[in-house]
Amino acid sequence: MTETSSTDDARASVPDPVLPEGIGIRASGADDVPAMFALLSAEQLASAGESSLSQDEVADWFETPRGRERNDVRILERDGATVAVWQLFRNFDDKYWAQVAVDRGLPSGLVDELWRAGLDWTERLTLAIAAGLGVTAPRLDLWVNEHDALTRKHAEASGFQQMRAFIEMQIDLAGYAAPAPTAGVTVRQAEIPDADSPDLEIMYRLITESFRDHYDFQLRTFDDWRESRSSDALLDRSHWYVAEIDGEPVGGLIGDNSYLEADDAGYIANLGVLRQGRGRGVAKALLHTSFARYAADGRAAVKLHVDAESPTGATHLYEAVGMYRRLVGFDFHKRLGSGD
């Protein structure tokens, strides 16, 4: 049995829940993207005060083979209007990510009922898909913003545990001027005209090796990493950089378009420096190169997220280059199928 057929069988084995009268549920598709985007954006604004979502990002769930194979999405409707979106994403065979968004303008009792049903559906589907892939105790993750009492309430009631805090940091680019180049460090734009470009493998190695000692690291094969990047609707390889010392790559930075549509901001998705490059100004050189390029592009700001307990002290690094703290979000986990 192929992986695709096993996940399809698992999906078919998990029925949709019975919902309150007047609420319909169905699998979503590409035609639902505008309505889902509107609801998910409103949910992000309500839970975080800002939204990083783009309509292309939602469409990516249905337009790429990877998106279709790894995402399961349900749309809930009442009187023809979209009132909730449930999403389950398979990140790895043993790690899944859940998202529940419910129209917060509904009666509070109904909001809570759709939240509980949504989390129950993601848990049952996670267990079924994981079992088909030979995994008996998968992990389900949920993101909770610091002031989002609704999501926290349901996460804790369902047995999720808060694991780690991540800080959103930002630098405003109005009046930004890059400092003098760091002595001994050369930063260049990665050259990746196609999937076989040497710089693509160099960037994979730099980011992978830099994060081996970081929280929740899980190794991806180069092929899986390359596929994940190439199918990302937010991809922007013009903002990928390699830092070198004496001609040897020691650091890499990956930017994407996460906040372009919502905030006219650049976004640093990954920044990694190998051990032999740490303490030599490599990370600052990469950051200032990125800031300068985003400023030249006319962006208003640059954002990133950092582990609040980063072993490399990254939070202080970002403050040292002029970034400030905006928001805090929390990674919640629940281990399924282990008797909990």
Rank of each mutant, 00 (worst) to 15 (best):
V135F: 04
T136G: 06
T136Y: 01
A137L: 13
A137H: 08
A137D: 11
A137Q: 15
P138F: 04
P138Y: 08
D141K: 05
V144R: 02
E146D: 12
H147M: 12
T151N: 00
K153Q: 09
H154I: 11
A155M: 03
E156P: 01
E156Y: 09
A157W: 04
S158C: 12
S158F: 00
S158K: 06
G159I: 04
G159F: 03
Q161D: 10
Q161W: 04
M163N: 07
A165F: 03
F166Q: 13
E168D: 12
M169R: 04
Q170P: 03
I171L: 14
D172V: 13
D172Q: 13
L173Y: 00
L173D: 11
A174N: 05
A174V: 00
A174H: 01
Y176K: 13
Y176W: 12
A178H: 05
A178M: 05
A178V: 02
T182L: 09
A183N: 00
A183D: 06
A183G: 00
A183F: 00
G184V: 10
R188V: 02
E191W: 14
E191H: 15
I192W: 08
P193L: 14
D199C: 07
I202M: 13
M203Y: 03
M203Q: 02
M203F: 00
I207A: 13
E209I: 11
E209S: 13
S210K: 08
F211D: 11
R212I: 06
D213I: 01
D213K: 07
H214K: 10
D216P: 00
L219C: 07
L219N: 13
L219V: 12
L219T: 14
R220V: 09
R220M: 14
T221I: 11
T221S: 15
D223F: 10
D224G: 07
R226L: 11
R229P: 11
S231I: 03
S231C: 06
D232Q: 00
A233G: 04
A233Q: 04
L234F: 09
L235W: 00
R237C: 03
S238F: 05
